[in-house]
Computed example of a mutant assay.
Amino acid sequence: MQYVDLHTHTSASDGTQPPAENVRLAAELGLAGVAVTDHDTVAGIEEALRAGRSLGITVVPGVEISTVSGGEDIHVLGYFIDHTDEQFLERLAELRAVRARRNEMMLERLNELGVKITMDDVLASLSKTADETIGRPHIADAMMRKGYVGSLAEAFERYLGKGGAAYLNPPRIEPATAVKWIMEAGGAPVLAHPGLYDQDELIPQLAEQGLAGLEAYHSDHSPEQEDHYRTIAEGLGLIITAGSDFHGERGGVVFHAPIGSRRAQIDVVHLLSEAAGRHDSGGPSPVRGREAEQHENT
């Protein structure tokens, strides 16, 4: 069997490894493919594609778009998007501007709480271009360097995660808009880690808007949740995907999980490619019947 990890992040967003390193690691682990799905940016895709060609491993060009529904963060993955599409790039730039404002708001709140962190502190160990993203893990890194927290988990639990003292969520696009943007960029939209939200009713709504798949297998899902979302996906005829959500290592801990810890058979890549092609041509979504047989999590 050949397997792929369909959800990884690189240093183009809040991962710690360059895109080529994610691809190298996936190849070293014996995976047939890996997706690069950075937050609100496609800046790492070209490097990953070059590494894939060099190593003989399939690289799926992707993105993870940040949206809000009911005041809650909802992430939509896009696979096989045209990462050179000018309109799509402009839209991602708008999302990064919202993310930048959120970062500033969180830093202001942290300072009010006595956690004296500036954007210069956050950027001190980073080398970022305008088309890359800065997120909460980077703020957490600065907090750890200055001794305010001992780990990434502590930073999110106490301050940066949902319910944390400095958590803020400014207005963003809705999930249906992200689905539309991904389709208009020739891609296949997939709802990321649905078990992290309390909005299952959103899944059939997005399916009516063109959602192609559901990430049933994710490193933060329990076995019960994986079964639950697999069943939902089967009922709606959605492609069932799997991904580790690998962000690299921080403070000696891999976040969220190692590459390959959640994986799908290579057939799923073909289904996503087909779905992207159908959307791009304006045709109907493909009929899917055997996706549930094509997944394995480890």
Rank of each mutant, 00 (worst) to 15 (best):
D220Y: 12
E201Y: 14
A185G: 08
G248E: 02
G213F: 10
L152S: 04
E249T: 12
Y229I: 01
D200W: 00
S222H: 07
L238D: 00
E224S: 10
G150I: 04
L206S: 07
I182R: 03
H256A: 15
L191D: 00
G195T: 05
Q225F: 10
K180L: 12
Y159W: 08
A216Y: 07
R250L: 12
L191M: 14
H221N: 08
Y167E: 02
E215C: 10
L238W: 05
A212C: 14
E249H: 06
E184W: 11
A212I: 01
I232Q: 12
V190M: 07
A185P: 01
S261R: 12
L238K: 04
R230P: 07
H218F: 15
E234S: 15
Y229E: 02
Y217N: 13
F246H: 13
Y167M: 13
Q225I: 04
P189Y: 12
P258I: 04
E224F: 09
G210F: 12
G195A: 14
F255Q: 05
H193R: 09
V254S: 02
D227S: 12
L152F: 14
I203C: 04
P194E: 10
A242Q: 02
E234T: 15
T177F: 15
L160N: 03
L160Y: 02
E208H: 08
R172I: 05
Q205N: 00
E249R: 08
H193W: 10
A166Y: 04
Q209N: 14
